[in-house]
Structures are given as structure tokens and as C-alpha cells.
Design a protein around this nucleic acid. Structure first.
Length: 739
DNA sequence: TACGGACGGGG
DNA sequence: GGGTACGTCCGTA
């Protein structure tokens, strides 16, 4: 049978491990193919302890040497650790911590989306996969609505709603949804934060209601759990956006609304939980449309993002399930592991806990930041170094085995060690191949059309992600290829070249507004910018290159130091078409009231349009409204989650005080609850004046707190550098008013 | 000034 | 097959 590889799993049957490859055949059917494989690792000892099936002599490359080792085969994956612990008492062990399925795929040379026939790779293109996105709404711990979008779309709920399938109750609704899954048989299920929410609730409700269906399990990972649903590949787009492609997005908030807006150009109304509850009570039709739209957006987003996830899979060898949840570190680490295996090189062991702790204590200096010139500027050219760190690693051959060789001596700027200039290192050689492959793809991309063009684009983008993640592993304490000197050296070269470029720009007569690590903001029009670019690039070594990232009509820089804390990367740019790019300025957290959040957005846009007076006017307007209590409860409510049980708190923040009040009033207070509150007028600290939002009204809130700590505070972040002070928004009457 | 605690996505 | 994310910023002691 010929099939395209999508996923892999294993089980133990009759005391032997069985690999199960999951894929899709030429007709589009889901298939599961089994194979036999034995777990193994390398050791300098061939001692036959319990669980060892057999051993084999092998010659492997370890660092700069060739080494004779034994390949130690173990009966079951779960016994690898035991055997290793046993052998480790008297021998060296390598490559023991590799997931069994991953070991199988690496050894066979299988990559996801390879076509396989009789255990051999054969040619074939990308298969057409059936997708289904789903989304649900939850009120009072019950699922009230489920929508799905794939070949067919629909909404299921247990109240009457237009264009929705109605079921008798929650149980009937979930059953109906499971039967849709059964009928449509999607290869891929897509969600937006399904790992963190939907599947968790679905599993709980199914259990509580005694429903049978596909098994939902959670795989514990470092700082999140991944939801698996048997029979399908679950891809969580939120995790992919949040972990990997956030760098390519201007948005700093990764809500479905923001991400769809940026990637699809489709706006979605951001709706508060209260609104969802009230829609379920009073307007089920509206909730149904909202829910339907979320599935639809998730599906459309997946049409944009899945090609990227799949190409990343093909390039890195990670299964699509894992790929959608990768961090940069894991992405590049396993890519390097695969390359090492292909080259017959033993890959480094994972560091132990105490080693990680030791590494954590050492820190090297990061990128250079040139303080921004505060205020508003016209005609801004933004330059950045193309793949700064990868190009440095390749150009200066930075790798653990090239550090302080005997044959060379030219030192890293400001440091007293060097890297070999003659013999290619492992990391630079792999990285160079990645970068060359990417350049070729880019050339082919220009000529290609339609689907082919899109695939090439995704593939070169995947390579870009791999390249850009590589520098990080040198400095991350838990990485296999951790190398303090390598990280420190790459950072030192980076500082050297950005500082040199800033000096060159100034000598060229350009005003430098801001610089950070690999980027440079100057006042220059396009022709001047291009002249400068040409000059710099003729002097840069190796494959290092400066690029013109963009030209902006206007930009706003906010001071790094604000009060007693320092913040970085705070700016907003306005392009020629009026589009706004905002970095580091948003107050989007739910512990700010929505009035303050929307005020800051308004102020920012007005300032960029040089309508300062209007911006200040807008602040005054909000202050006035607050004083006259002409606001809605929704504008002033703050929400904070209880991170632990009430007894565990040492400090008492506002939400803790409110939680205590709720408890005293006979309400159940649990960990994880979101406490909604407002700050009321009266005596004492802010905490002492916090009251539950449903026990308070518009007449109760503390005007001074909302004016000063919320509205004026967020507005001043933007307006302070234009000489505005608190007093400017308060009018003369505030003091008097408060007294 | 130091420290505790919460933010992120979803509903 | 393993990381006590992680960088930011409020409120209180």
C-alpha cells in the first residue's frame, strides 16, 4: 500500500513494541500501517543487563574524534532509561533520550508528507486533506453551542436558533457533533486554543455526561498540555502563532480577532464573556452567528497557516502535531539531531538538572540598544540585518567544536577567544546549507505561479524559521548544543556590526532615531536610504547583509525609561497608506479596564496623525465622563484570575480582598476563578476599596482611581514626551472636586 | 526598593 | 522525552 505520512504512534503488543504510521492513501482514506522496530542507544559498554536484547559494534563521530561504540538494543521503549542507568555506572551512554517514534522516523529517513510504499520512500505530491475547524461556547460550565466548518459547516445548540441544528440537551448536542466528525472523517481537526480550552472542556463534559466517543488525552509538555483526539490529527493554531510565527506579525496580541485581522484582513468583534452569557440568555441567534463565524475564521486561518506548518514538518522532520506546538528551541534542536544522525555524528546528551542550574547562572550581554530619540518624526527609513545571527554564525564559523582551535588566532571583538577559520563546524555547515537552500527557493519562487508559488513561499519561510532559531540554542541552558562562548561571540559580533553601522550612518549625515540589536531607524528618504545601503553592504564580511525593511511617513518613539522601570521597543509607525504598526505600547491586559485600553489606542492614532490637541482633548473627554459617571459598568470592570487557593496568598491584591468578601458572603471561591471587580470610593488602599462588580453600580466607583491610575496613566505613556502632564487632562477643578 | 503576583489564548 | 516559560508591570510591605 502507498500512503502519505501524517502522524506516528506506537503501542506494546505481546511484549513487543509496534510502530503505527498514520497517513492518507491515494484515494484520500485514512490508513494505519504497522512496522517492527527496536529501541536502542549507544554505549561504550556491551554489558548484557536485564532488558538488553542484543548489542552491535559501531564506529561513530563524537566531537572531533572517531569512536568505537556499541549499539545497545532494548526490549521496550520504557526500559531504555533503566538500561541506561545501569550501564551508566561504568560506561558512557549516548542518544538515549529520543522518543521511540522519532527514533524510528529518523533512522528510516522518513519525513512527514513523504509517500511510503512497502517501507520505502516513493515519489508523490502533497495530498488533499480534509480539514475541520470547530469552536464551542460555554456558559456556567456547560457547553451550550458547538460550531464546525469544513466540507460542511453548521452550528449545533440546545436552544432554538435560526440556521442551527437543535438538540434536546447538552448530551444530545455533543453526540450530534461526534456524529458529524464520524461522517466527515477529517484528517485534521483545527482549533484556536483547543489545547488550552475546548478539548479540556469537551473531555470533562463527555466524562460527566457518560458519553462515549474518540479518546481525548492530554500530553504533558513543558508549559502547556497538548490535546490528542484518537483518529484525527489535532492542530492548535493559537499555539503555532504564539510560539513560532508571532515574530512575523505586527500584532502583539494573539487573539483570534487580531490574528484574523492581520492574516486574513477580516475583522471580528471582540466580545467579552459577559456578552456571551447575555447573548445565550437573550439572543441565541446572535450567539449562533458569532460561534459559526469563529469556526469559519479558524478554518480560513488554517488554510493560510497549515501550509506553513506542513512545510515546517517536511523541512524539520517534526510530525505536524508537534510542529504546531513547537518552540524555536525544539524546532532547531531536532533539526540538528536529524542532520547529525544523517552524518553519523553522535548528538549531544541532554544536560542534567544540576548542569542546567549551573548554566543558568552565567549570562552574556545581548544586543545593543541605541536609546530612541523621543517624539514624532517624519520620513523614517528602517534597516535591518538580514538574518543577523545566522549570518554571523556562518561567516565566523561559530560552533562548539571550532572554539579555540590550535590553527587560528583572530579573536572575537572584545573577547579573548576565537573560532577556527579553516575547518567547517557542524552548526555553521548545517546552517549554511539551510540558508543556501532558502536562497535557491526564493529564486524559484519568483518564477513560480499559483499553488507552486505558495508552497515554495512556505518552504523558504520554514527554512527561515530554522535559521533564525539557531542562535538561541547556544545560550539556552537546557539545549543539547548549548555553548556559552558561541552565544556570547555571536552577540558580540552583532553588537560590533550594529554599532559600526550606526556610526557609519551618522558619518553619512543621517540622523539615527533608534537602533535595537539588528535594526536601525533613521531619517531618510528612499533614494538616500538606498545609497547608504549600498555603501554599507560593500564593506560587510561574509554573508552579512543590511536590508531596507521599510519606509514610513511618520513614527512615534516613547522613552525607554518611564518612571522607575525601563521598557524597550516602544514605538508606533504610520506607513504611507495610513496603516499603523505598534510595538510594546499596548495595554491589552484584562487587569486594565476597557475604557483605558480603548483610550490608549485612540490617543496613539491621533498623535501619529499630528492631532495632538485632539488626542489630549480625547483624554479630557474621558476624564470628564468618568467624573460625571457617564460610563458603563463594562468600561470600568477589571478582571483578575485567582492563581492559587485563597489561603496560599501572602500578599493581598485587590482581587484577593474581593475574593475574601465573596467567600464571607457564602460564595464558593476556587482557584482559577476570574474575579471581576471595580475600585470603589472610600478610605484605605486600593485593595481595601475593591468590590465585586455585581455588587456595585456606576455610583460607587472611585473617580480619582479611574482618572489617575487608568485613563491618565495609559494616555501619558504616549503623551508625556509631547510635554503633557497630568494636570493638562484634569482641568483646575479636579482637586476641588475630590475634596 | 524589593517582592509577590498576574498577564497571555479560550469562554 | 525534559525544562519550574518569560518579559512586563502593577500593588503592597
Amino acid at each position: 500500500m502507498k500512503f502519505c505520512l501524517l502522524d506516528a504512534d506506537y503501542e506494546v503488543r505481546g511484549g513487543k513494541p509496534v510502530i503505527i504510521l498514520i497517513g492518507v492513501d491515494e484515494k484520500g482514506n485514512r490508513v494505519a500501517v504497522e512496522d517492527r522496530f527496536l529501541p536502542y542507544f549507544y554505549s561504550s559498554s556491551a554489558r548484557k543487563v536485564q532488558h538488553v536484547v542484543r548489542t552491535e559494534r559501531v564506529k561513530m563521530k563524537l566531537g572531533r574524534q572517531e569512536k568505537n561504540l556499541f549499539k545497545v538494543y532494548v526490549d521496550l521503549p520504557q526500559n531504555v532509561q533503566k538500561v541506561r542507568d545501569e550501564l551508566k555506572r561504568s560506561a558512557d551512554c549516548y542518544e538515549y533520550s529520543v522518543n521511540f517514534c522519532r527514533r524510528y522516523l529518523m533512522d528510516k529517513g522518513f519525513y512527514p508528507f513523504d509517500w511510503i510504499k512497502n517501507g520505502k520512500k516513493v515519489s508523490g505530491g502533497m495530498p488533499r486533506l480534509r480539514l475541520m475547524a470547530f469552536d464551542m461556547e460555554v456558559v456556567d460550565g456547560k457547553i451550550v453551542m458547538i460550531s464546525f466548518a469544513g466540507k460542511s459547516t453548521g452550528v449545533i445548540t440546545w436552544k432554538k436558533a435560526k440556521n442551527a441544528i437543535q438538540s434536546a440537551d447538552e448530551k444530545g448536542m455533543i453526540k450530534e457533533f461526534l456524529s458529524v466528525l464520524e461522517k466527515e472523517k477529517p484528517h485534521i481537526i483545527v482549533t484556536y486554543n483547543g489545547d488550552g480550552y475546548d478539548f479540556d472542556v469537551l473531555r470533562q463534559r463527555m466524562e460527566e455526561l457518560g458519553l462515549r466517543g474518540p479518546r481525548i488525552t492530554f500530553e504533558k509538555r513543558a508549559y502547556m498540555s497538548s490535546a490528542r483526539i484518537s483518529g484525527f490529527v489535532h492542530i492548535d493554531l493559537f499555539n503555532f502563532v504564539n510560539n513560532l510565527i508571532f515574530q512575523q506579525l505586527a500584532s502583539e496580541v494573539y487573539t483570534l480577532a487580531e490574528v484574523s485581522e492581520e492574516l486574513l484582513g477580516k475583522t471580528k468583534k471582540d466580545i467579552s464573556y459577559e456578552e456571551i452569557i447575555s447573548m445565550w440568555k437573550d439572543d441565541v441567534n446572535a450567539l449562533s452567528e458569532y460561534c459559526r463565524n469563529d469556526s469559519k475564521l479558524t478554518l480560513e486561518l488554517s488554510e493560510k497557516l497549515l501550509p506553513q506548518i506542513f512545510e515546517l514538518s517536511r523541512v524539520s522532520g517534526h510530525l505536524p502535531f508537534d510542529c504546531s506546538r513547537l518552540t524555536y528551541g525544539l524546532l532547531v534542536e531536532w533539526f540538528l539531531v536529524r542532520k547529525a544522525v544523517e552524518m553519523g555524528i553522535i548528538f549531544p546528551n541532554q544536560p542534567h538538572w544540576d548542569e542546567i542550574q549551573k548554566r543558568r547562572l552565567r549570562r552574556f550581554r545581548g544586543g545593543y540598544v541605541r536609546e530612541p530619540v523621543q517624539g514624532l518624526h517624519d520620513e523614517i527609513s528602517v534597516f535591518d540585518f538580514r538574518a543577523l545571527y545566522p549570518s554571523i554564525i556562518v561567516t565566523f564559523n561559530i560552533s562548539p567544536e571550532t572554539l579555540n582551535c590550535k590553527c587560528c588566532s583572530s579573536k572575537v571583538p572584545g573577547l579573548d577567544y576565537h573560532f577556527c577559520r579553516r575547518k567547517r563546524g557542524f552548526v555553521p555547515s548545517v546552517l549554511e546549507e539551510v540558508m543556501q537552500r532558502r536562497q535557491e527557493l526564493k529564486k524559484r519562487m519568483i518564477k513560480a505561479k499559483g499553488e507552486n508559488h505558495e508552497q515554495l513561499k512556505s518552504e523558504q519561510n520554514a527554512l527561515k524559521l530554522v535559521a533564525n532559531s539557531t542562535y538561541g540554542i547556544f545560550g539556552s541552558p537546557s539545549a543539547r548544543w548549548y555553548c556559552f562562548e558561541c552565544g556570547e561571540a555571536a552577540a558580540a559580533y552583532g553588537r560590533h556590526y550594529i554599532q559600526k553601522t550606526i556610526r557609519d550612518a551618522e558619518n553619512f549625515g543621517l540622523k539615527v532615531l533608534y537602533g535595537d540589536t539588528d535594526s536601525l531607524f533613521v531619517v531618510a528618504n528612499e533614494s538616500l536610504a538606498k545609497k547608504f545601503l549600498k555603501k554599507i553592504n560593500s564593506s560587510l564580511p561574509g554573508i552579512m547583509e543590511l536590508e531596507l525593511q521599510g519606509i514610513y511617513a511618520r513614527g512615534l518613539f516613547v522613552p525607554q525609561k518611564l518612571g522607575n522601570y525601563t521598557a524597550k521597543k516602544r514605538y508606533a509607525l504610520l506607513d504611507a497608506e495610513g496603516g499603523m504598526t505598534v510595538r510594546g505600547l499596548e495595554t491589552v491586559r484584562r487587569d486594565w479596564c476597557s475604557l483605558a485600553r480603548s483610550l490608549q489606542r485612540d490617543v496613539l492614532r491621533l498623535v501619529l496623525e499630528k492631532r495632538h490637541a485632539q488626542a489630549a482633548g480625547r483624554v479630557k473627554e474621558v476624564v470628564e465622563k468618568l467624573r460625571k459617571r457617564q460610563v458603563k459598568m463594562d468600561d470600568i470592570v477589571m478582571r483578575t484570575q485567582l492563581g492559587k487557593s485563597l489561603e496560599e496568598y501572602k500578599a493581598t491584591g485587590p482581587h484577593i480582598e474581593v475574593a475574601k468578601q465573596l467567600k464571607a458572603g457564602g460564595h464558593e471561591v476556587r482557584e482559577g476563578m476570574v474575579i471581576s471587580y471595580i475600585i470603589a470610593k472610600g478610605r484605605g488602599s486600593i485593595s481595601q476599596r475593591a468590590v465585586p462588580s455585581d455588587k456595585a453600580g456606576i455610583k460607587d466607583y472611585d473617580i480619582e482611581y479611574y482618572v489617575m491610575n487608568q485613563a491618565v496613566s495609559v494616555a501619558l505613556r504616549v503623551l508625556r514626551s509631547f510635554g503633557y502632564r497630568e494636570e493638562d487632562f484634569l482641568g483646575g477643578s479636579l482637586r476641588k472636586f475630590l475634596e
